[in-house]
C-alpha cells in the first residue's frame, strides 16, 4: 500500500500527462517510492503497478532498465562516482579510489554499518566539474578532491 503522501506526490506527476497516459508517471512514481522506502522491492513495484493501473512486469521493466533505480537494498547514503573518460582525465578515478579506501568497500558494496554504498556512475553531464559524485540520486557534488570528500562524508550522519 502506498502512503497518502506518496499518492499525493504521484498524483502531481500524473497530472503532467494526458488523462489516458498515466503510465507516463511511472518513472517519477518509482523515484518517489525509492526515496521513501530506500529501494524498490518486488512488493513496492507491485504497489506502483496497482496504483497506476499497469502490469507489474511493465513497471519492473522500467525499474530494471534505468541505472538510478536500486532493486536491492543500499546504504543510507548511496554515493555514485563518475569515472567516465572526461572525469577520469581530471581525477574521477582517483576520487573513487580515495572513497574505496576511506570506506573500505569496492563498487557495489555497502559498509558494514549500512551507512554508505559506493557505485560507479556513467556520465552525469557535469564533466567540467570533475571529479563529480552524486549522493542519493539528488545531490550533485562538484570538484571532489580528498578534502571535499572528507567533508562530504562528515556531513553524512
Amino acid at each position: 500500500m502506498l502512503s497518502q503522501e506518496s499518492r499525493n506526490q504521484i498524483d502531481r506527476e500524473t497530472a503532467k500527462y494526458p488523462a489516458e497516459q498515466k503510465q507516463s508517471a511511472v518513472m517519477a512514481a518509482l523515484a518517489i517510492m525509492q526515496a521513501e522506502r530506500g529501494w524498490l522491492s518486488t512488493e513496492t513495484i507491485g504497489d506502483v503497478a496497482a496504483y497506476l493501473g499497469m502490469a507489474p512486469v511493465a513497471v519492473y521493466e522500467v525499474a530494471s532498465f534505468y541505472n538510478m533505480y536500486d532493486l536491492a537494498p543500499v546504504g543510507k547514503y548511496k554515493i555514485t562516482v563518475c569515472t567516465n573518460l572526461p572525469c577520469a582525465l581530471s581525477g574521477g578515478v582517483h576520487a573513487a579510489d580515495y572513497l574505496k579506501q576511506k570506506l573500505g568497500v569496492d563498487f557495489n558494496e555497502t559498509t558494514t554499518d549500512g551507512k554508505f554504498t559506493l557505485k560507479e556512475g556513467e556520465c552525469m553531464g557535469a564533466c567540467g566539474d570533475a571529479p563529480v559524485m552524486l549522493v542519493n540520486n539528488v545531490r550533485m557534488c562538484s570538484f571532489m578532491q580528498p578534502g571535499q570528500i572528507d567533508r562530504l562524508l562528515e556531513e553524512c550522519t
Partner: peptide, 20 residues
C-alpha cells in the same frame, strides 16, 4: 533516471510514455 540511450530522440519518447 539514468539511461544514456534516452538521449536518442525516439528512446526519449518511449521513456516519456513510461516504458524502457
Amino acid at each position: 533516471y539514468g539511461a544514456y540511450i534516452c538521449g536518442e530522440e525516439t528512446a526519449l519518447l518511449e521513456s516519456i510514455e513510461g516504458k524502457k
